[in-house]
Amino acid sequence: MPTLDFRSAIREALDEELAADERVILFGEDIAVAGGVFATTTGLYEKYGAERVFDTPISELALAGAAFGSAVTGLRPVLEVMFGDFLGLAMDSLVNQSTKYWFLTEEQVSVPLTIRSVVGAGGRFGAIHSQMPVSWFMGVPGLKIVGPSTPADAKALLKASIRDDNPVLFFEHKRLYGNQGEVDATPARLGEAAVVREGTDVTIATAMKSVHDALEAAEALAADRVLAEVIDLRTLRPLDLETVVASVRKTNRLAVVEEGPVTGGWAGEVLASVTEDALGYLDDAWRIATPNTPIPYSPPLEDAFLPGPARIAAEIRRRLR
């Protein structure tokens, strides 16, 4: 199996989908000639030309609108919104046009668009280039939200997102781009979680960068004979509740790790859903997330702010005592 970094996996997925379907177009700020500020689109403009891959003005409102309008007029747009923090500007068209259309057309017309965006903290980018905007969108029916943790998933899930007939928000955690991993041609399906480490004592459900932190915590816990099962949710909307509930039936404890403010986050949604479904199996259930403040710049502050491996392990030890 070829080994790729996360960044190249994204690039390959885009390349293959542009090649496979001529309705796919790719646009955004600095993505064509410059190859993207995170270098995820290098070479695609040269390969497919300006018809298919193009740079845009800094106009997120226009970009999101153009994605919607073109998606209901025969194209399959893939839009890059450079940082997730800028999604506020793209939100209206996405929420009030793209995610409503399938319903309002009496399910005659779907909106096959993908918005890729770079998210997450830990890069010392401060309060407005580090956010995790998943929870801004969790309450929007008709929207899929995807967040891979490995190069293999980055490729497979991005391909699945582009092929999906619905609006999809695809989040790329900026601290994963350099990660290496084996990437095969196995397709993935949106809405399916994966058990990435088996255990019997506690279930840790999480996504994106935090999957790696949870795995590191699980390793540390194993030394104390605490066996944690780690679930990579991969798609946050729709949630794969079944996989989480199956795990909880075995472990009876659930910790949901969310990089994002504890209040109003998706971790609360996971807890609520599991509680409704499997209350009788639960001995303990809680969230490990970030405080309800913006993200600080200074490294010691940002490190303490994030739910890293040490905090995950410490909380699990404390709750299991």
Partner: peptide
Amino acid sequence: NGGRAGSMN
């Protein structure tokens, strides 16, 4: 800004 803001903010 006490290290909260950084260059951009």
